[in-house]
Nucleic acid binder design. Structure first.
Length: 611
RNA sequence: CGGGAUGUAGCGCAGCCUGGCUAGCGCACCUGCUUUGGGAGCAGGGGGUCGCGGGUUCGAAUCCCGCCAUCCCGACCA
């Protein structure tokens, strides 16, 4: 990505204000650091385990961590890189409070839509406040207060800020806390084309950013969830401890969050000549498996393919939607019987409503529903139950199904969509499986896990409308601004980088992220030539602008020093040991484990070339 | 929010079932001596509201009740 003149100045300023402290020396004899020999009991994922063991972070609260000196250096390196790339893209930094009044969030409905994940509190007067989970409302109001013309747009501004979410279950250390740092940007444009350009600029900036952070990523189509809005993509680091499940095509570059996967719609089948639907006795078959077994055990029910399978059946699942205003609405979902309804996918489609189970009491209040034998006849807004009925996209005109006949012990065979039944709409709620068909190329999909490290949204006009952000266009008419929002988990990125780079010995940082360029180790008898030689080398490295972590501790055995150096994960380890009598020191690459002896006089040039 | 497990020194753990001396071990820490290329040895030492609150008992780390926290699996979410 190219950088123009003006951004370069911004880059310089950012580097000056929070730069990587060229030439800094951290002496381990003085450093506030204690490494742990054992894994902390409560840490499960590698990044959490190693960051605690290596003395980078320490748990301070449920879902909250204290950064120790090494960790804080690493954190600031990540933050600096994020800032530099935002500035380079021409975005401007602002900073909001985290503690905010409720009113803007009431205007956007997020005070309620965000649910229990929002930290709410009151001041001494009983006024409601929140600890912001993201800042769409505040950015919108800020722009509204200052700008009023199309001439001022486009605009993209960002902040790097502590965010709060009352997670049901904080876990995995830095990967999911209740307090975390996020970079959030917002774009403001006059029209959809402008929004698309702003979105694309952020997308490009994120690609540059994550490349620079040495984070592997997959860009997947996503749902926008509680943020509202339409187009949305996630940057996922494909790492198994991640909590996001996504699919990717094994043949083309299609990738999507499971919630956003679109099922290819099959072609309709002509209705002419299809067999008529018939109601048949299927006693004691309330589940798909019992139904399929029964059909196969009775030859009079001839299957078109020779043998009945769950895929020949249609399963109708009833749930309730709880809308943000608290009202409950029953909803029927029809999916092929060989697939479960994925409640997460369903919820993503019907948001902001939540899914709650349809229980025995609900069945009693809907007497036309026969549990285990529910079928389209009773479903639908026009049906006898009046329950809205949504179906899987695979159920197209001409497809035939075995499904409930709305009588105990009876099913209907060859019930044909478009002839015998219809639905109120289509919904993507069936589970996604490995091997499913790619909607782009028809290849096979695979399922993988990832850590969400970035998320970009085209919000559209939701917030601008709710909060009245309008500007005059070139004709002097008021138009509502369209917005985008773009997040990067900064503190999470530290853990994600650790996850992407650690090995069996410890952390293994990319150089620009690492707390130092070199880890200088003294390995020799106290009083021997090693210490003075190491001190001299340390001074030279520092003078050359290299950041040095210097293990100058006394009375520490070489084994401990080596283990600590590997655990801490600085990319280059220099050992001043027994070779010093011949003027040699050992230079080891942390990642590859390669070590070479070289004349002490060559070290500065060697390491400088790596940086 | 459901199911399970756990909570004892900075970290890792034993003790609890079957209540009873001063609550113990390893690592880490302090002192001394030895050791110095892969988490050293010996000797001595400091450090504990046994998660919190209530109860039973002559007596509670141990038994009972409640709460909190942590981890795992679900549910939910950046």
């Amino acid at each position: 990505m190219g950088t123009q003149g003006a951004p370069r100045a911004a880059r310089y300023i950012a580097a000056m204000s929070s730069g990587p402290s060229a030439g800094a020396v951290l002496r381990m004899s003085k450093l506030f650091l204690r490494t742990l020999r054992d894994d902390p009991n409560d840490a499960e994922v590698p990044s959490h385990r190693l960051l605690v063991r290596a003395g980078y972070i320490r748990r301070a609260a449920p879902g909250g961590f204290t950064w120790l000196p090494l960790g804080w250096i690493v954190y600031r390196n990540v933050e600096r890189i994020v800032r530099e790339e935002m500035d380079a893209a021409g975005f401007q930094e602002v900073h909001f409070p985290a503690l905010l009044p409720k009113e803007p969030y009431e205007a956007s409905n997020r005070w309620t839509d965000y649910g229990d994940n929002l930290f709410r509190l009151q001041d001494r007067h009983g006024n409601d406040f929140l600890l912001a989970p993201t800042h769409e409302e505040m950015f919108t109001l800020l722009v509204k207060g200052l700008y009023s013309s199309y001439r001022d747009l486009p605009l993209s501004i960002y902040q790097i800020q502590t965010k709060y979410r009352d997670e049901a279950r904080p876990r995995a250390g830095l990967l999911r806390g209740r307090e975390f740092v996020m970079k959030d940007s917002y774009s403001f444009d006059i029209d959809d084309a402008g929004l698309q350009r702003s979105y694309d600029r952020h997308r490009e900036a994120y690609i540059t950013l994550f490349d620079r952070l040495h984070l592997p990523y997959v860009i997947v189509s996503a749902m926008s969830g509680a943020m509202g809005g339409s187009a949305s993509e996630e940057f996922l680091a494909p790492i198994d401890v991640g909590e996001d499940t996504f699919v990717r095509c094994t043949a083309c570059d299609y990738a999507a969050n499971t919630e956003a996967v679109r099922v290819p719609v099959p072609a309709a089948i002509p209705l002419d000549g299809l067999p008529a639907a018939q109601v048949v006795d299927t006693p004691n078959t309330p589940t798909i498996q019992t139904l399929v077994d029964h059909l196969n055990a009775h030859p009079e029910f001839a299957s078109p393919s020779g043998e009945w399978t769950a895929a020949d059946t249609m399963k109708n699942v009833i749930v309730k939607l709880r809308h943000p205003d608290g009202t409950l609405e029953p909803l029927a979902v029809g999916v092929p019987g060989d697939r479960e309804v994925d409640l997460k996918r369903l919820e993503a489609q019907v948001g902001p409503a939540e899914i709650v189970p349809f229980d025995e009491t609900d069945f009693k209040s809907h007497p036309t529903l026969v549990k285990g034998y529910i079928g389209p006849g009773t479903l639908g807004l026009e049906g006898s139950s009046g329950i809205r009925f949504l179906i899987d996209p695979r159920i197209v005109v001409g497809t035939r199904w075995v499904t409930g006949a709305n009588q105990p012990g009876k099913h209907v065979i060859d019930l044909t969509y478009g002839r015998d039944f219809t639905a109120d709409g289509v919904v993507e709620a069936a589970e996604v499986r490995a091997g499913d068909v790619c909607p782009d190329c028809g290849g096979a999909l695979e399922i993988a896990r990832g850590i969400e490290i970035g998320h970009i949204f085209q919000l559209g006009r939701k917030y601008a409308e709710a909060l009245g952000l309008q500007v005059t266009d070139e004709h002097g008419k008021l138009v509502t601004v369209t917005m985008g929002s773009y997040g990067v988990g900064v503190s999470r990125a530290v853990a994600a980088i650790a996850e992407a780079s650690f090995d069996g010995l410890g952390l293994c940082w990319p150089r620009e992220i690492a707390p130092a360029d070199v880890h200088l180790v003294i390995a020799g008898k106290e009083g021997g030539p090693q210490r003075p030689a190491a001190e001299a080398l340390c001074a030279e490295l520092s003078a050359a602008g290299l950041r040095v972590l210097f293990d100058d501790r006394e009375g520490v055995s070489p084994g401990v020093r080596f283990k600590d150096a590997e655990l801490v994960g600085v990319p280059t380890i220099i050992v001043v040991g027994r070779g010093i009598d011949d003027g040699l020191v050992e230079v080891k690459d942390r990642a590859s484990g390669e070590r070479v002896d070289m004349p002490v006089g060559d070290v500065v040039a060697h390491v400088s070339a790596l940086v």
